[in-house]
Design a protein around this nucleic acid. Sequence first.
DNA 1: AAATCGTGGCC
DNA 2: TGGCCAAGATT
Length: 304
Amino acid sequence: MPRGNDPGQGGPHASAGALATWFARTGRALPWRRPPAPGPGPHGWGVLVSEFMLQQTPVDRVIPAWTAWMDRWPQPTDLAADSPAEAIRAWGRLGYPRRAKRLHEASVVIVERHDGLVPDVHEHLLALPGVGEYTAGAVRAFAYGQPGLALDTNVRRVLARHDRGLPDALGSVTVEERRRAAELMPPADGEGAAWMAALMELGALVCTSRSPRCDACPIADSCAWLALGRPAGEARRRQAAYDGSDRQARGALLAVLRASDAPVTQRALDLAWPDAIQRARALDGLVADGLVVPAARGRWSLPA
DNA sequence: AAATCGTGGCC
DNA sequence: TGGCCAAGATT
């Protein structure tokens, strides 16, 4: 019986070997990246924190924030014992501060329902605030070595190109993408998780969105997209303008709250954003998200 | 299911 | 310079 995961041999797991070799040699030593261990265990927390921070924030900006975070709250119980306000402050300018609030909420659930250890059961992970399909699969794979599917933007792009000859995977993850990824994942114990990590790293370092370096790609030989001459695809939806947006307004207001230990006056918020209508809308949104709460004497504060 | 949600760096 | 992109989740 041929093993089927040697490069150039064909079959569903072709090129897995070349990819693994490349990852072992080229993969970055990111601080949250450690050999997986069967869980649930204390090592799950660092991975969970990293995945929250990496939801739409680049690795380079996450590294220092992750280090400081883990230094301050080494386990879920440490974060759960602190206030959401402190989590939101420590989040700083990583963006999307709801993630900080949800990570704090998740730590509380982990303490109350999972003995203070990040769970390794998919449904339990999915039930945590701020954890979706991707993050649940990533924790299972990267923390616990399970064959969890972690179809992030990198993995989806690599598979779209290599497997389907498409320039990228647009829209949300499809059933067919999941089916195919599960089919391609090496079946051997523990190899699925390593494969996910390698694919993701390949998308981050080589098979990038803008200028893919196919000359440095370990699986270029079998890449359908390269064989087709790297055809271009349709453009994505344009991102909404940020300048002058409600998001910028929310950011400006929250920055004031983060910088103050005491509740801030309405006046202080007025100074942070000129347009009164938009300011009110932004504040409403922040309150609805639980990121800001009314305090005494008409002031505002982060959630205690 | 399309829109919303921060921030910064790169070409 | 400004559009594009970045380990998504939620409603």
